[in-house]
Structures are given as C-alpha cells and as structure tokens.
Amino acid sequence: MREDREVEILLVEDNPADARLTMEAFKSSSMPHTLSHAQDGVEAMEYLRRQGKYAQARRPDLILLDLNLPRKDGRELLTEIKTDQHLKRIPVVVLTTSQAQEDILRAYSLYANCYVCKPMELDDFTRIIKSIQDFWLATVKLPPE
C-alpha cells in the first residue's frame, strides 16, 4: 500500500473504445490513481523506458496488457518486459477478449502475472476491474521501486 503517492497504472490497449471503457471502470474506484494509456507495444516500451515524449513518465506500478496490438504485439511486449532487468518485476495483468487455450498458456509461459478475460456484460467488466484494483493495488505487496 502506497499512501505517499498515487498509484501509477499503464493501460496498453489499441482500441480507444475499449480503453475508455477501462478508464470508466477505474473512475468508479475510490483509490487515487493515474491511468496512462499506450496504444501499441512500441509506444508502451517508449513509455516504460522514458523515451521521447515520455521522458518524464513515472514507472508504472501495474501494467494492463491487451494481447492483440498493432506494430508490436502484446506477446512481444510481454517478452521484452519480462526479460528486462529493470522492468520484469512490474506485475503484468493480461486483459483480453481471447479465451483461447494457447493464448492463456503462452501468456503464463512468458511470465504474465495473471490472465483475465474481458466479459461481455458491463457489470461483469466493472466488477473484474474492481477486483483487479482490490487485489493488485490494495491487497498484494508490490516490489519496492
């Protein structure tokens, strides 16, 4: 629990509607947080390595990752993060519509911290986002910076 500052979350999602929906779901949360949005893998890596316009970006406490992304795919991005000495400790929650067995297996093989399917219903989705917040941001001890 970090009471000294706001929690930093990076959402990697190519679909703006989907991203907005996630943001809306987070809005209902009472926990103070900052939600940054990267539209593809390349942009996400720039953000994480504080390159270009993200030079001032903060290191995120949690990454929400969609698998199907343009330019750099979510799986590639996951591989890069989990093989990077500085980034690999950041928890990555894979948030995707795919229920395919191989996607789930592959994500865990690449050291994703958890795999969550986006449900159809808005209520279900809101509940899932809330439980992610409750678990990853309020329950677990995140690694020190």
Partner: peptide, 20 residues
C-alpha cells in the same frame, strides 16, 4: 467469432453504460 466478440462487446458495454 473471435474478432466479432470485440466490437460486440463494445456495443453491449456502451449500451449498458448508456443505460446506467
């Protein structure tokens, strides 16, 4: 069916958001 789920979810979710 896989790719159809995404837009459909958007339709459903935003309709529900609208209703809420």
């Amino acid at each position: 069916s896989h790719d159809l789920q995404e837009p459909l979810r958007m339709v459903t979710s935003y309709m529900q958001l609208l209703r809420q």
